[in-house]
Design a protein around this nucleic acid. Sequence first.
DNA 1: AGAACGGATCGAATCGATTCGATCGAGCGA
DNA 2: TCGCTCGATCGAATCGATTCGATCCGTTCT
Lengths: 354, 354
Amino acid sequence: MDGEASAVTQRPTLAAVAALAGVSGSTASLAFSGAGPVSEATRMKVLAAAEALGYAGPDPRAQSLRRGRSGIIGIVVEDALQDAFRDPMSLAMLDGVAAETGNAGAGLLLLSDAGGPQIDIRSAPMDAVILVGCSTRLDESVAVLRKRGMPVVAIEADDMPGVLSISLDNRDATARLARHLLHLGHENVSVVSLPIDGSKIQSPLPADWDALATSHTTRDRLRGLRDVYPEFGGIVAVRSSIEAGRAAGLALLEGAMRPTAVVAQSDLLAIGVIRAAESLGIRVPQELSVVGFDGVQIDELGERDLTTVIQPAQDKGRAAGRAAVELIAGGTPQSTAFTSVLHIGSTTAAKSQP
Amino acid sequence: MDGEASAVTQRPTLAAVAALAGVSGSTASLAFSGAGPVSEATRMKVLAAAEALGYAGPDPRAQSLRRGRSGIIGIVVEDALQDAFRDPMSLAMLDGVAAETGNAGAGLLLLSDAGGPQIDIRSAPMDAVILVGCSTRLDESVAVLRKRGMPVVAIEADDMPGVLSISLDNRDATARLARHLLHLGHENVSVVSLPIDGSKIQSPLPADWDALATSHTTRDRLRGLRDVYPEFGGIVAVRSSIEAGRAAGLALLEGAMRPTAVVAQSDLLAIGVIRAAESLGIRVPQELSVVGFDGVQIDELGERDLTTVIQPAQDKGRAAGRAAVELIAGGTPQSTAFTSVLHIGSTTAAKSQP
DNA sequence: AGAACGGATCGAATCGATTCGATCGAGCGA
DNA sequence: TCGCTCGATCGAATCGATTCGATCCGTTCT
């Protein structure tokens, strides 16, 4: 119960090292950081004292207060962490981000927007924040961050004031896919969409999805489809995965008004839909055309070549990481809009004439 | 161009807020943190002053210095980040870690052991560190952390002094798989192993792998195989993925002395090997038995039921996360050893009599 | 009424380093 | 020999908050 125990446990500080070495604290600091002129003899003395005391180097917490920077960049994903990294796209993006931030010597702090008592986005010691596909639901937190002068970069998120944005032509790319289907003669097209909000259940696409959707990416892609097919229905999958796509595909294809083409909002979902079709004895592309989104090389496809749009996922991540680093350094990087490339494979064909 | 020139000059501090509110800094602090008795009137005054000044709340950096805790737990993976999360196992583990640390209100700082100028493991403002499958190569960094009094938890890593360990029966589990094959009459068994070190190239398993291997997990699993088959060869895959397994499988099965059974060190690799066999016209399990490791439900398997060992990946993560949290709180959690369960599926069969 | 009590508030020390400006010599050219 | 400059070192302020102990004052108990 006495304070002695804690006193014994006390870790040495730079001041203690300086005292033992017989130099001032400032000199000891210089000896460690290497900045500023320190004679070799003094440096040795300080290092020896540190060794003797078991001093492990400057406390990062004190450093980050004094320097005003912590070397940490936060990355906020909308889903739970496990979902976020299930999709190869997210991974590629994360990868790009990590490459750039790593280069700048910064660490990545994983934060999840959804659920759970995670650390508060507003009170983590970060130098900048990257939002990934986050909705306006985060507006409040973002406002706090902005108030604090924290640089914020958003990848495929709603526009928020003061936030640098890295965007993708989700709407236009989907429209291009849709027009491809239109040219092939398809009239009855359905969507298998990514989740439109935080709920984790598969359901028919609600008619008022435009108002309901909180996921920026999902909504934009739906809009692109609507641009070409003003009327369409579909299923909202629980996540971006093959299994979720299969489940949604089954729900869609077992119905009475079976579509002749399906627009899946990710390649994983598309593969799932194709699987579902196969298990129902529906031939792709003869009886059903399927398109995806992302352009990820998935070896689960077998001989198939998926019609999809290829997006530069890793580049998006790199751009975001670089922007964050530049913002921290006081630069003024520009918002960037990436475009995807239509890739026509062998999973789409002209609508068969009945 | 946003009109916040004044804000850019100098961000308000708690002291400024206190001054405007006409109270002392200590009172203002109490008003924000909620700890300690503050009259409602005073609290309102402080909050109003904060609002007027655009004060966004206490600076996390200063807080973490004063409180001695940053609310951040570091997680160090051996691979590059992209590889680390490619494998569903890693994800499940990360997921378990995130669940527990999230519950405790801590954020997860992603650090990579391998390559690149990542933030220095030794100088990040963390409260604890979780090492995932890290080798003794990290010994030096870990020593520094220990010196600093930082709690360290290691999942499937080499034993390091002062480090709490969460382990898996990699060796014994592999031995059980091997004995299963032995009982089935297999004599010519090869391995498709995970990388044994940082190099990213596929190669034949070197004879002196026990000395060369820096990956704890890989080595333990190889040892388990050796316990049953003193002599065996194989291929080192570039990573844990279906594609890598297929490539390694091709290299293995195209050779002259084709094995009658393959021990793959992960389910992903096993699936790849099966694919390779199929593409070569080798029937599984009639002509080739294949076993995996992990017990992950992969829907790429089709009708197949992989013989493997099922490990509690998420539980491992949870245990590590919980241990880290307890250590931070000053507790003394125990090291935990997890065991995996042999699952005999349909990818193994008795060696065919020629 | 006086003492004891307890809630609200304040002052000052503290967390552990970084960094600016000043100081102090030693070497150097004039 | 006298400044003068440059390199090494030191003192002190600073980063922005938390928190311990003391103070002040309105209540309540006896």
